[in-house]
Design a protein around this nucleic acid. Structure first.
Length: 558
RNA sequence: UGGCCUAUAGUAUAAUGGUAGUACGACAGAUUUUGGUUCUGUUUGUCUUGGUUCGAAUCCAGGUAGGCCAACCA
């Protein structure tokens, strides 16, 4: 039976099929993948998909995975990003075999370029970028090759050396591969291989003033590392012929590129450029703002690495464009947090409830399990006395039919305490309810209930005298529309102005023991974790995700 | 309008010429000291037109739709 189930679960994605075929035919004895971020921003959930894929493949097939920073553009890249990327990959639970940098290979890449020149397959072009663009033609119109392409090998070698030596200013010259100006694939129309940038590089400093382009760095880096399966996203498909052309003409290790569809999540964006804009223009507070789809944002929001890995596993790997529902990510985090979160009671919109038949001045300590899903989770004690707070929403004077909560004459259970009955509603001059008078049934105490009563509803509550005031940050989707990237005009026009709501919660005393690594379920509300902004005076919680709310759905239906 | 990629349920993803399955969602019910969790059931799908074949989601051709490509970005 379990055998059969295992069999069913084993459907492979198309990359796994390729790898298993390669291993079966003996093309490779082992697999070596790489995760190749450019350190020009923080990693997001889309990168998590790529990380899980690349590292997952390494793990699954007994191979290895390198972390390689694709740092060939010094003007956008920073050490801060390198550090955040390493932290995020580690946090997700993966270990790289080697930490490499494309910039480690600059000398080697330079030699590769010389080799192409010597083979008559590359030349130095003095044209301006505008000129080059013009001569490139259009998809329907072939490009033309200019007079610089006629230069001799020796002249090209000299000129290229002069570029490196810093004889020219930015943009004065470029090195181009000599391929096919009439190719229907624009990337083959004598693509640029090197450009001049007198810029400080985060690792090589001022050692270089020429930098290789992506197409002359990525594939070669793969090859230098003997990467067997170089996995990237769909938009690099047209680059593949060039990837192969370079490897073939350089006569180096033949890494192979495979492309999968990047992750798109609804109600958010997945572009580093746009995310950077949100940060720079203060639409969010930082890269790790809990509303951000960044790994660091999700982490701060309370998402666990396990839940993100589970999510990446569930969405699958294929080649068609997709827009995944945010609800799936929420399902994954709820599933994990339900298993591990400590239950606590917190009232957000308090209304006073007085238990008229409970002795004044008396307080008893009640016991409640930390997590009903975890038999070893232990218990905590909760004070109970004559005056408590309940959620204003949990009381209605004129309730609809299926309202299982408190209403005049109705009975409910106070979680881990007693069954109470509502006797009287106290109002002010404006007829607003100011307090609810109830009586409790002493024999109905949790754990030793002999009352024989059955009630439909159970409410969370806090003892009025011990309520701990906490700040709670409630997050909603960052954008108002499903796919901001595909919308007309500026994506920032679609930002949800109500993505953050700060409210006050009144919590049971046990909340004071909260630590940064704890996960909580505020009962009947949602999952929460302590935010790093917390101080000695004030506990601050982030709402990771709400609990599913069947009643809210019922109310909505009318 | 040149080339390339893709098309299976609301969203994703399997089925590799032989019974269209799984997850999330939705809906209905059971259980419940969280209207949570758990459990059960239901619903909804092969873009289109031809062809090959005993048999097509799968192979072929045409069409349609969506995406990508003309950065000294990656």
């Amino acid at each position: 039976m379990s055998e059969l189930k295992k069999e069913e679960e084993k459907s492979l994605n198309f990359i796994e099929e390729i790898i298993e075929e390669d291993l079966r035919t003996g093309k490779y004895q082992s697999v070596l993948t790489r995760f190749p971020p450019e350190p020009n921003g923080y990693l997001h959930i889309g990168h998590a998909k790529s990380i899980c894929l690349n590292f997952g493949l390494g793990l699954k097939y007994g191979g290895k995975t390198n972390l390689r920073f694709d740092d060939t553009n010094p003007v956008t890249e920073e050490t801060e990003y390198v550090e955040s990327i390493k932290e995020d990959v580690r946090w997700l639970g993966f270990n790289w075999a080697n930490e490499f940098y494309a910039s480690d290979y600059f000398e080697q890449l330079y030699a590769f370029a010389e080799k192409l020149i010597e083979k008559g397959l590359a030349y130095v072009d003095d044209s301006s970028s505008e000129q080059i663009a013009k001569e490139k033609g259009t998809p329907t119109l072939p490009g033309i090759r200019n007079q610089y392409s006629e230069r001799s090998i020796d002249e090209n070698l000299q000129l290229f050396a002069d570029m490196r030596a810093g004889k020219y200013k930015d943009g004065e010259k470029v090195l181009r591969a000599k391929i096919d100006m009439a190719s229907p694939n624009m990337h083959l129309r004598d693509p640029l291989m090197y450009r001049i940038k007198h810029a400080h590089h985060h690792r090589t400093g001022d050692a270089w003033c020429i930098y290789p382009m992506y197409d002359f760095a990525h594939g070669q880096s793969d090859s230098i590392e003997n990467i067997t399966h170089s996995i990237c996203t769909l938009e690099f498909i047209p680059h593949r012929p060039l990837y192969d052309w370079c490897i073939e003409n350089l006569e180096i290790f033949p890494s192979k590129q495979y492309e999968f569809a990047r992750l798109n999540l609804n109600y958010t964006i997945m572009s580093k450029r746009k995310l950077l804009q949100l940060v720079n223009e203060n639409h969010v507070t930082s890269w790790d703002d809990p509303r951000m789809p960044t790994i660091s944002g999700l982490r701060r929001r309370g998402y666990t690495a396990e839940s993100i890995r589970e999510f990446c596993d569930k969405i699958g790997v294929a080649k068609r464009d997709n827009l995944i529902e945010f609800g799936l990510l929420e399902f994954c985090i709820r599933e994990h947090l339900n298993r591990i979160a400590l239950r606590r009671m917190v009232v957000f919109n308090p209304i006073k409830l007085i238990i008229t038949n409970y002795p004044e001045g008396q307080t008893e300590q009640l016991s409640s399990e930390n997590n009903p899903e975890d038999a070893d989770g232990g218990v905590r004690s909760i004070p109970f006395s004559r005056e408590i707070f309940i959620e204003a929403d949990d009381f209605m004077e004129n309730p609809p039919k299926k309202f299982f909560r408190l209403a005049p004459g109705q009975k409910v259970r106070l979680k881990s305490a007693y069954i109470i009955q509502c006797d009287e509603v106290v109002k002010d001059v404006n007829l607003n309810v100011t307090a609810i008078h109830c009586s409790y049934i002493p024999e109905s105490k949790s754990g030793s209930d002999t009352s024989g009563l059955k009630v439909q509803g159970t409410l969370h509550w806090v003892n009025a005298a011990d309520a701990v005031e906490v700040e709670v940050r409630e997050y909603d989707r960052l954008f108002k529309v499903e796919n901001p990237a595909s919308e007309e005009g500026d994506f920032k026009d679609y930002i949800n102005p109500d993505s953050l709501k700060v409210v006050t919660g009144y919590a049971e005393p046990a909340i004071k023991e909260a630590t940064q690594t704890d996960r909580f379920q505020f009962m009947r509300k949602g999952y929460y974790c302590l935010d790093k902004d917390t101080t000695a005076e004030k506990l601050i919680f982030n709402r990771t995700v709400t609990l599913k709310d069947a009643w809210a759905k019922e109310v909505k239906k009318g």
